[in-house]
Design a protein around this nucleic acid. Sequence first.
DNA 1: GTGTCCCGACCGAACATTCGGTTAATCTAG
DNA 2: CTAGATTAACCGAATGTTCGGTCGGGACAC
Lengths: 194, 194
Amino acid sequence: MTMAKRDTYTPDSLLAVAVEVFNERGYDGTSMEHLSQAAGISKSSIYHHVRGKEELLERAVGRALEGLFAILDEPGAVRGRAIERLEFVTRRTTQVLMAELPYVTLLLRVRGNTRTERLALARRREFDQRMAGLLTAAVAEGDLRADMDVKLATRLLFGMINSLVEWYRPGAGARADEEVAAAVVRLAFDGLRT
Amino acid sequence: MTMAKRDTYTPDSLLAVAVEVFNERGYDGTSMEHLSQAAGISKSSIYHHVRGKEELLERAVGRALEGLFAILDEPGAVRGRAIERLEFVTRRTTQVLMAELPYVTLLLRVRGNTRTERLALARRREFDQRMAGLLTAAVAEGDLRADMDVKLATRLLFGMINSLVEWYRPGAGARADEEVAAAVVRLAFDGLRT
DNA sequence: GTGTCCCGACCGAACATTCGGTTAATCTAG
DNA sequence: CTAGATTAACCGAATGTTCGGTCGGGACAC
């Protein structure tokens, strides 16, 4: 029994609207009035679907973290030489970031003002550490330059990937997205120089 | 006749305090009460030194932009092969970012909610375009890989540099700072691989 | 006629900013 | 050297506004 199309909101469809506005104005810069206008329903109606503003943030960052951590369980991330796993995770992280752009964008901008935000920051740090482990392994296997601090390299690599949220906009097609992911991997591992 | 040291605030010394708080809590997440507590003076006293919250933001992003644009006028940025100028600007941008960290951090987090913020965003875009011009020239001179979209490469390069504001913390000494700048240049131009 | 979805009216709290002053240091005239 | 004027720096209390959230009720589908 498939449900007929509804023009009412579900918590998730409302979330999609809210996250767009959060990313445009910043979470703290967004009022419930802003959200209600963007969603086309009244402020009070929002509270019919979600408990409040913070629940929207919680759902959004949760979804982003879910997508990112799932990468680490994919076969390409657990088998093979460290450098191959690292390249895989780099490419997949870029792809997930593009696919879940609004949610990841919000995740990368939380500042730690509330418990929800601090929890998100902790999970992000955990992901970073898993990544740093891959770098270390790849250096040990002799496939990565040893003349650079691993933590520093991890941060720069991540910084490059995460910067996608500042400029990437979807809609140019799967081909274009593939090109972006490939460029990230190429730049990270082989550099800009001829 | 040098002025004796005063323990009172000037607009600039107050700015330094304010920017720290802005970066910790986010601009929109910071109340004047937060600022007054951090500065150790009352809320109303802040208005003796600056016109309001937005003037503090204005001064901060102005200072950051000043530092960044100054790089483009330095000799190393106007003379020599394009790739050398590009490497110079990459290194210098990293250094300025570290030296003016709190101000640049604030600049990079501006969302465009007010006229002040939109002005800052426009100036940032201008800087990016100057940078993209250097990339294009370096490709034309055959020193940069041609198999990557220039705009894409510019954004990734910048994303890597700008990500410093997320993790770099000063105080490890000039030697350590030099190492960071060198790592950025090496990673950007030669990649991670052995 | 009950549950889902929505609304306008409303609330207390927090917000940026203003106002009417006080304090303490500096300057100025005799 | 000092009394009086001036000023920068500051404060507590209050202003109007906006905030996130609540409430009681209406429409309408099943």
